[in-house]
Design a protein around this nucleic acid. Structure first.
Lengths: 224, 224
DNA sequence: GCTGATCTTGACGAATCCTTGACGCCTGTT
DNA sequence: AACAGGCGTCAAGGATTCGTCAAGATCAGC
């Protein structure tokens, strides 16, 4: 369960947030002032902190700064103050987001999801996986059975265009123009040669490809 | 240098943002519509994308969704629309932050800093080890069999760029521009000479390197 | 101004990659 | 049944890129 700490000195708002967040499946703890917030943050691991800036005991940005000395937990700031100095100060103190009251609950929840999404699994890369091979577009890498597959520059470019358009049909002209340049729109030979090359390197059964599909007369298609 | 892509169809705003961001030390590229934005994002690695939702060709959230199929780059959305449905839709499509026009430049810059701070690789180990040698990025030191290896300044810079991007392909242009400067993008001779130098000093079998890998026609890659 | 280290430059085989054309298969058409 | 067009396959050559070396240019420290 995702643990969220809500810090606010307004009991009504605190209660409303608690109920809403719990209804959306979050595990909520609350605090009404800066000191107990910092204390609560040390008690058990948190996935996120929602922090009101107007606390009775401590300046809100001090809380963030204190927290940041030992934690990287995402902090979403609530504040009644619209001034941009306040926002800049809080964000530079270490906050990750800042919304002003009054705010929509659906917006709060969406921002919360965005923060959690980013902090979740930092080394989860955008890799496209099939049952036969995986393509890591960021690292520029193709693996199959855990082993690196070596692709030539042209092979890679072609695979890249297809993988960036999953399930979509990529026309021959589109492929030729993106890989070889707009002037090569009629060299469909290239496509046949390189598609065969890719299939030989990537498809378990070269003769019956399941991921690099030919659409006769039109183009090709990548299926994850 | 931090690379930022700004996408907006308003030339004035585009220009203003470009100037402001450049004045704050960012490396700015721009795009005026969704297709060229997606294309630009494939060209060279980006640290952040600032995206206007009101584009002439594509729906803004479609751009985010498309981008998210292969990239985790932080996206900050600009929009003239204050409605919370728009915000929720964009954030759930994969955006990381959302601010409405008109906005203060200092707030934009603060949110940008917050996003970059969070996406900065936190667990970049200062010491990278392979079975043949060890690189200490903090102490600026390379050891092999317990002994210090002397590297010239250029050798070190090149090794550093590669080691900071483990397993990732670093293009020739990227290497040349980070080590010698952007003007040297065609002096691929340098790369060959210095890569040979590094391999001679670091690889047990210079002829069959296992950590400093060549990707013919594209660049090089460091494998731990 | 000298010396040693470092960087640049050019040249050369070796390795890799791209292009090209030929051939056979399959499919749908005449 | 014959045919034509599109596709997959293969291999040879030609073109590009890579690794290597060494000589000259440049720089830093003394």
């Amino acid at each position: 369960m995702t643990a969220v700490l809500v810090v606010d000195d307004d009991p009504h708002l605190l209660r409303a947030l608690r109920i809403t967040l719990q209804a959306h499946g979050y595990d909520v703890t609350t605090a009404a002032d800066g000191h107990s917030a910092l204390l609560a943050a040390t008690q058990h691991p948190l996935a996120l902190v929602i922090l009101d800036l107007g606390l009775p005991d401590l300046d809100g940005t001090s809380v963030i700064r204190e927290l940041r000395t030992w934690s990287r937990v995402p902090v979403l700031v609530l504040s009644a103050r619209h001034g941009s100095e306040d926002k800049v100060e809080a964000l530079d103190a270490g906050a990750d987001d800042y919304i002003t009251k009054p705010f929509g609950l659906d917006e709060l929840l969406a921002r919360l999801r965005a923060l959690l999404r980013r902090s979740a699994d930092p080394d989860q890369e955008p890799v496209v996986t099939t049952d036969a091979f995986t393509v890591d577009l960021e690292k520029h890498r193709v693996t199959r059975d855990g082993q690196d597959i070596r692709l030539t520059p042209t092979e890679w470019k072609m695979l890249e265009v297809l993988v960036r358009n999953p399930e979509k049909l990529v026309t021959q002209q589109q492929l030729l123009s993106e890989v070889w340049g707009p002037a090569y729109a009629k060299e469909t030979n290239y496509l046949r040669v390189y598609m065969a090359q890719l299939r030989r390197k990537l498809e378990p059964e070269t003769a019956a490809p399941r991921h690099l599909i030919t659409e006769a007369g039109i183009g090709y298609r990548f299926l994850p």
